[in-house]
Write a protein that binds this DNA or RNA. Structure first.
Lengths: 214, 214
DNA sequence: CGCCCCATTGAGACGGCTCAACTTGCGTGG
DNA sequence: CCACGCAAGTTGAGCCGTCTCAATGGGGCG
């Protein structure tokens, strides 16, 4: 993309105000107008079905993009909440569509982003369907570590943006099982746990227990 | 879309030869060039990870579109196999991208299709994470019933295109549990099972046990 | 007919859930 | 300053649903 194109894209982005922990950016059923890029903080997305069951569908860190649900129906299909004070960029989707017609690489880029989301969701299906508690927790830690590393933060020392409850909800486990699993991994020396502070001692071994095994 | 546009789209579609049961359309790592629309038969997509663990990621029936994985990386991220003799239309993705620049509603349409795939995958995450065996099987049956109905087939009487093995793999259950669950639902009178032939006696009650409960 | 594959059914093992008690950190108010 | 309540996390004991292992029953096909 050349400078002029980047400028055009830049012009349609709205910088939004900070969002407080626990505040929603949008909810299921809200009209779909925009997608969002996380600038700081951390965001969770979750389904809330009729009988009140919650399913976390994703955690989003700075640099990541969310909101691709709801293009089909014009209504958002999930809830989006800040897990801590966060800022996001709002990107009006109609503008993106218009610009995409002029800038082919932009169109390609959004197809790619959505495709990546689909692949990530499929990996998550594998995790939920085929891994035991240790494998699920290890997979989450490796994922977070990689994403922290991409932002030039230490991949070995990280602060979990989410509660045990959220982790359990995301991974299909109870908070008790999450807690016990952290304790076990710590006892085995793979990680060091102090509340939300996690230190990864042995990446290799942690990665090895990500492999599916029920 | 006006007639001329429909014609343009029609011209880029390649009608492919029939594909035999068990034959692959593409595999993980193959270069991404096209998406596919199912014309007849039925198709399954699945991940195959390093240690040989398989995770079914979707079943596709006539009228449905697959292959949105791999746009990001230019390589397909899953395997795609015909479950019975099937025919598909191949739609070269570069052609779609070119046409989308000329026909805005086409671009919108593909964004919508991918968005719907994402929402369906999130629903599947909820199913895998929060439902017990009965709920998972019931959810699959309701989904198939709805999709058969959309094709003007009976929503009450359907022939499963996939084996018990595939169902178990998809739902994160063993074939034994799938089998036992079918038997239990039959004993309760909700469905009638005869191998792959399923008759749904009580839609209402079947739908009611789809609700999450572990 | 005999073989093989798929499906069904049973018995026992085990991982994660449920329920419950206890700890820790934090904010509020006396 | 401490007392108190509250929310989040940890740990233990027992239970339950699904997996594992094994035996048996068809159905299609050479």
């Amino acid at each position: 993309m050349d400078i002029k194109d980047i400028d055009k894209v830049d012009n349609i982005i709205k910088r939004s105000r900070p969002i407080q922990a626990g505040e929603h950016i949008y909810r299921t059923g809200d009209g779909f107008t925009s997608i969002f890029a996380v600038r700081s903080g951390s965001i969770k997305t979750y389904l809330l079905d009729d009988d009140g069951v919650e399913q976390m569908t994703g955690f989003y860190l700075p640099g990541e993009i969310l909101g691709f649900d709801g293009i089909g129906t014009e209504k958002h299909g999930c809830n989006v909440m800040a897990m801590e004070t966060s800022t996001v960029c709002e990107i009006p989707f109609e503008r993106i569509e218009e610009l995409s017609l002029q800038i082919p690489v932009l169109q390609r880029h959004f197809f790619q982003l959505m495709s990546q989301q689909i692949e990530a969701d499929h990996q998550m299906m594998l995790t939920l369907s085929k891994k035991n508690a240790e494998g699920r927790v290890a997979t989450l830690l490796i994922s977070l570590s990689r994403r922290f590393g991409r932002r030039n933060l230490s991949p070995n020392s990280l602060r979990l943006p989410m509660s045990r409850m959220d982790i359990g909800n995301f991974l299909g486990l109870t908070i008790e099982t999450v807690s016990r699993t952290f304790s076990r991994l710590q006892k085995e020396g793979l990680i060091k746990v102090d509340g939300r502070e996690i230190h990864i001692n042995d990446h290799e071994q942690l990665r090895s227990i990500c492999h599916a095994a029920k």
